[in-house]
Simulated scan of single mutants.
Amino acid sequence: MTAVQKSLAEFLGTFWLVFGGCGSAVIAAGFPDVGIGLLGVALAFGLTVLTMAYAIGHISGCHLNPAVTIGLWAGGRFPAKEIPVYIAAQVLGAIAAAVVLYLIASGNPDYDLAINGLAANGVGDKSPGGYAIGAGIAIEILLTFFFLMIILGATDGRAPAGFAPLAIGLGLTLIHLISIPVTNTSVNPARSTGPALIEGGIALSQLWIFWIAPIIGAILAGIVYKVIGGGGQDIIGTEG
């Protein structure tokens, strides 16, 4: 696949992740009587990755996440020269999704960006459960580490064929079930960037946390998987 094809796939895939995941939180989570709640939002994020893995995994590898791209590089599964293009496409897709989500949410007269937000990530006063910055950083590093371990293992050529998207999607669902109360769950710098740019304020001032912590966790996972798994061979196109 060409660089343009892979970039477009990453743009669309990341758009779907942010629009589907954050959209479920902004539009459907608190809907009167039939709101999907935390469980529904967690499942929505997992489903976005699962569906896109089948849709574009064979085109770009379906990273949808700068931390995943960097973690795969650290694990010896992705070329460094393609990292900037992938990250740019992911961030632009996330921003576009946040803009579209805001436009749609604004169609409800009761919606207020300052009050309802766009499911941005945060700690302290911005944390859904009031968790401090140290707890937020720790959980983002830890959960991104395990997310990358799942990805690296599930896409290893020695793993059962055809099940990688299920493992990765369900892994992301579990991650959200654990950490939505702590940080609103990032493990993805692009996913954090789109909503933060639209919300501004605290979300934007804390954005650095959701770049640094996930990338640290991802790099650690790439290194650890090379040690315990011997690198492995990709089976869903993370090499493009």
Rank of each mutant, 00 (worst) to 15 (best):
K126E: 14
I104L: 14
L92P: 01
E82Y: 04
P160Q: 05
T48M: 12
E82Q: 14
S60P: 13
N121Y: 03
A96T: 14
Y111A: 04
G35Y: 11
I168L: 08
T144E: 01
G122D: 11
A161P: 02
N108I: 09
N108D: 15
L101Y: 04
G40A: 07
N65A: 01
L103G: 03
A88H: 04
F147V: 05
A74C: 07
H58E: 01
L143W: 07
G57A: 06
Y131W: 15
M52I: 05
T69L: 06
T51C: 12
I151Q: 03
A159K: 11
T144F: 06
A53M: 12
I95Q: 00
S60H: 08
F163T: 14
V100G: 02
L64S: 00
F147Y: 13
A114D: 13
A55T: 14
K81W: 10
L142I: 15
A119V: 03
I70W: 04
L50A: 05
L142N: 00
L152K: 11
G61M: 10
G46K: 10
G46C: 03
G71C: 09
Y111K: 10
I115R: 15
G117S: 08
C62Q: 08
Y86K: 06
K126N: 14
A161C: 00
M149T: 06
A97E: 06
A44Q: 05
I133Y: 02
Y54A: 04
A89V: 08
G122Y: 07
L47K: 03
K81A: 14
L118G: 04
L152Q: 07
L143D: 00
A135R: 03
V100H: 01
A80L: 15
I168R: 03
A161D: 12
L142R: 02
G35H: 07
L113A: 08
S106R: 13
Y102W: 15
G35P: 07
Q90Y: 02
G134T: 11
V68K: 00
A89S: 14
G35R: 08
I87N: 01
L47Y: 12
A132F: 10
A53S: 15
A154L: 06
D112C: 00
L148V: 11
S60A: 09
I115H: 13
Y131L: 12
S106V: 00
G76P: 11
G153R: 09
A67F: 05
G134R: 06
M52L: 08
A154Y: 05
L148F: 02
A53L: 04
I70Y: 04
A94Y: 01
E140G: 04
I70H: 11
T69S: 15
G153C: 10
I168T: 06
G37S: 07
